[in-house]
């Protein structure tokens, strides 16, 4: 709105003067955003350009590189293990996102309302977020260790299992251990995002609905959730993007095991680049993953757009 009125106000001025004013305004504006542009150029645009450039080469970690056009991309179409990794990443993303929201939403509802010790709850739920993924993985690597950890020996001592049960030796227990760990680690962050969304809903709306006789579920469905669309969209995109790029926890906790069943897309890129020393191929895989991520984010934004298009 304000930009429109500014334009309208400038209308009567002489065309020449207006242009110079706008020009100067442009330059000042450019000056203000220059640091940001430099940062984005140096840390995003140039590396992205280099990745794209490298992806067109046979670029070994050691030795000479040579241009091979789109050969890397052709190879990707035949790389069964990459597509399997992508499949697993998709599976993980769906499960972990549902799990995170299933935990974070109730938590957000719980900590949003003023109650005694609210600060303590909020801090406690948020605490794991500030632990880095690598350190959290190391902590859980110990918790899950079959011989010297916590869960397996405790289960045996309590008589739940007859002998030590190795949680990370088969796919399902290993996978769900990771899910639990990630939810523990990330739910607090999603909770805070959802909480700000909840707090931005005017209380009058809820009160009016109450007076009209709407029950808790009706209020949630017709008021809370629709008004939180944007917040949910943000939390969802962050969660999905984070899950598709998952690497640390699988690398540190499971080493891609048991038997290579938990290799994510990024893990495969890492392996190709730094185990097989094929940097060019790794770069091509990264470009493919980038495209997938952008498409997914666009789809999510579209789905969660407000119906009026605002």
């Amino acid at each position: 709105m304000s930009s429109i009125s500014a334009k309208a106000g400038a209308m009567p001025a002489a065309p020449a003067r207006r242009r110079s004013k706008i020009d100067r305004g442009h330059w000042v504006g450019l000056l203000y955003i220059a640091p940001a542009i430099v940062l984005v150029m140096v840390f995003f645009v140039i590396p992205l350009g280099m990745t794209a450039w490298m992806s067109l080469h046979n670029w070994p970690l050691m030795g000479q590189h040579r241009f091979i056009g789109l050969d890397n991309y052709v190879a990707i179409t035949k790389d069964v293990r990459f597509w399997n990794a992508l499949k697993f990443t998709g599976y993980y993303t769906v499960i972990v996102t549902i799990a995170i929201f299933a935990v974070a939403f109730p938590l957000a509802l719980f900590v949003e309302k003023p109650r005694p010790m609210m600060g303590v709850y909020r801090t406690a739920f948020f605490m794991p977020v500030v632990v880095g993924f690598a350190s959290a993985s190391l902590l859980w690597a110990w918790l899950l260790n079959v011989d010297s950890g916590l869960f397996s020996p405790a289960a045996q001592e309590l008589g739940l299992t007859e002998k030590r049960f190795n949680l990370i030796a088969t796919f399902n227990p290993a996978f769900w251990s990771i899910i639990v760990m990630v939810v523990w680690k990330v739910a607090g962050f999603t909770m805070v995002i959802l909480m700000t969304g909840l707090q931005s809903i005017p209380t009058e709306l809820q009160e009016a609905a109450k007076i009209d006789g709407a029950n808790a579920w009706q209020r949630f469905r017709s008021i809370t959730f629709p008004l939180m669309r944007r917040t949910v969209a943000l939390a969802l995109i962050l969660s999905v993007a984070g899950s598709i790029l998952a690497f640390d926890q699988f690398y540190i906790l499971l080493r891609g095991g048991p038997r290579n069943s938990t290799i994510t897309a990024v893990y495969w890129i890492f392996n190709q680049s730094f185990v097989s020393f094929k940097l060019g191929y790794g770069a091509a895989l990264s470009m493919v993953l980038l495209v997938i991520l952008v498409v997914l984010s666009l789809i999510q934004l579209r789905l969660l757009r407000n119906p009026e298009g605002t």
Partner: peptide, 22 residues
């Protein structure tokens, strides 16, 4: 390609030994 086929934690050798032993 020793690193790829043998030493890599996700290579065919590492996967095979785990499968054939357990």
């Amino acid at each position: 390609v020793f690193n790829d086929i043998i030493n890599s934690a996700n290579g065919p050798w590492a996967q095979m030994i785990n499968e054939v032993f357990f």
